[in-house]
Design a binder for these strands. Structure first.
Length: 509
RNA sequence: GGGCGUGUAGCUCAAUGGUAGAGCAGUGGCCUUUUAAGCCAUUGGUUGGGAGUUCGAGCCUCCCCACGCUCACCA
């Protein structure tokens, strides 16, 4: 029972609720009659005041009580609503004894209140609501874990604010209710998604939705979550990427498509990995990775301007400028500069592994050449790519869906974008030769043990689709959560996901 | 999975192995322009859970749980 979990503080509030009900007052009425937000009410008054118009501004406000200062026969309160905070002023002369008692007997911090009256300016100069009537909109039985706010030089300084990360993530509703900067992150997130959609829509892309439950997973190398359809007796996977479905649409003649949605990867959790995360992928017929590169830097620059009003951001105490053009580093040259190793001189894994050992780079034994190169990228290029950087021309064996460079079969037309030392996006000229694609699937299968779920399973229907002809195309994927991390200056992916994954608490907790 | 760290009142935090405290919140009282309102009084704890060492454990040891940082893993 909920009641059994209540603390002494909460039981006191429950008693107030019961007392209200006994008096015939509904602590959870169905309807509210809000006419203005806090900001609208204050602006209406300020504008009228500036024009010397003293016609009363009658309003009904609704919000959560965040401060309450009873002073005998008067009282002040502050309420929060969706666009700000406003002060309420209660006075016994106008409300009567009964209403004033109602305020002190039944109302607590955190309760939702509706108050009607007219706007005025207090002696201290704060535009406030002179309350003529009010009612409870919803009783908060648990107290919000926030102390008081102090205004210092116009800035709201919150004392003893909720900061325990576990409580903040497990009870995000409380975090949001109490920490305005957290609400701000998710406004940035919404604005980011909107700007990305705007940009793509304006370039004639259409947004589509493809299956999340997939009979064959693909498009990335990651372990999937598995599930089962009972009636169909069919095992299914939660998608690890959208890629293979979106490219089927290219076959179908949808020349510019994108999808924004959730991917699921059954792998480690870290400050930049969550088991489910938001991905944007687009596919663009008759384009290629060079054009996509240019498109990417313009799209991110556009989004930054839309969301933040500037392409300059601060991330991890570093100033980053997202405006195009971004730095371009050819992979071979980048590795040569960083480590002195020329990967072209090491066409097989044994040779490269030896070269890495000679430079004390600790190669993981038995890795493929591509995996070794990838580890060099992760160790030497990625952490140093603070300013936006495209690294391009990747090894073929770690890029089974990308097209080879003409005249250089070991290298594919692929780039990854890095910002703030973090991989942000991945793109390539799409492999559209079904025979080559079949070979790649087979090669990938050989690179893994038979029971390794990271192996790329053969997708016969995808090969079938390619066999009908897929136009040459550029494709692109970006981790939207990471982009929001950059835009909001947060170093942890959990800060930009409303309900990040945490372990379950034990039953007897 | 490994290493390091954290867990004390609703929140933020104190407390040499020796009576578990403070501020805010709460409760009662005073207060007709406050804004971290103020003043007086006051309630509130299985110190994450369990075991051990000790005359005595919030503190030391072990096990477990959760969270954080980090390494590994991660196209």
């Amino acid at each position: 029972m909920l009641e059994e979990s209540f603390s002494e503080l909460e039981l006191t509030r429950l008693e107030k609720l019961r007392a209200m009900e006994e008096k015939g007052m509904d602590p959870f009425p169905i309807r509210a009659e809000q006419t203005h937000t806090s900001k609208e009410a204050i602006e209406s008054f300020s504008n009228a005041e500036a024009e010397g118009d003293d016609t009363p501004i009658k309003v009904t406000l609704a919000g959560r009580i965040r401060a309450l200062r009873p002073m005998g026969k008067i009282a002040f309160a502050h309420i929060d609503d969706r666009d700000g905070r406003v002060q309420l002023f209660f006075r016994i002369n106008d409300l009567g004894e009964e209403k004033m008692e109602m305020l002190s007997d039944y109302f607590d911090l955190g309760d939702f209140i509706q108050a009607s009256g007219y706007m005025f300016r207090t002696r201290r100069g704060e535009v406030s609501l002179y309350v003529e009537d009010f009612k409870m909109l919803a009783k908060a039985l648990r107290p919000l874990p926030a102390a008081k706010d102090e205004i210092v030089d116009g800035e709201v300084l919150r004392h003893a604010k909720l900061s325990d990360p576990e409580t903040r993530y497990r009870q995000r509703y409380v975090d949001l209710a109490v920490n305005p900067d957290v609400q701000e992150i998710f406004k940035i997130r919404a604005a980011t998604l909107r700007s990305l959609r705007d940009y793509l829509d304006n370039h004639d892309f259409i947004e589509v939705e493809t299956p999340i439950l997939q009979p064959i997973y693909g498009g990335a190398a990651a372990q999937p979550f598995t599930t089962h359809h009972n009636q169909l007796h069919q095992d299914l996977y939660l998608r690890i990427s959208f890629e293979l479905y979106l490219k089927r649409l290219l076959v179908g003649g949808l020349e510019r498509v994108y999808e924004i949605g959730r991917d699921f990867r059954n792998e480690g959790v870290s400050y930049k990995h969550n088991p489910e995360f938001t991905q944007l992928e687009f596919y663009w017929a008759y384009s290629d990775y060079q054009e996509v590169m240019q498109f990417t830097e313009e799209m991110i620059g556009f989004a930054a301007k839309q969301v933040l009003g500037s392409t300059k951001i601060t991330f991890d105490n570093q100033e980053i400028d997202l405006s195009p053009p971004w730095r371009r580093v050819e992979l071979r040259q980048g590795i040569l500069d960083a480590t002195g190793i020329d990967i072209d001189e090491h066409p097989d894994s044994q040779s490269l592994e030896a070269a890495m050992k000679a430079k004390n780079l600790n190669p993981k034994p038995g890795s493929t050449r591509g995996k070794l190169i990838d580890s060099i990228i992760g160790d030497f290029l990625e952490p140093n790519a603070i300013q936006p950087t495209f690294i391009y021309n990747y090894p073929r064996d770690i890029s089974p869906l990308a097209k080879s460079k003409p005249g250089d079969p070991g290298t594919v037309e692929r780039f990854e974008g890095f910002v703030g030392g973090m991989e942000l996006c991945n793109a390539f000229s799409e492999l559209n030769d079904p025979l080559d694609q079949e070979q790649r699937f087979l090669e990938m299968g050989r690179a893994y043990a038979d029971d390794d779920e990271e192996q790329h399973p053969m997708d016969d229907d995808y090969l079938n689709a390619l066999s009908y002809g897929m136009p040459p195309a550029g494709g692109f994927g970006i981790g939207v959560d990471r982009l929001v991390m950059l835009f909001s200056g947060r170093r942890s992916i959990r800060e930009v996901i409303l309900f990040p994954h945490l372990r379950s608490l034990s039953q007897d907790e």
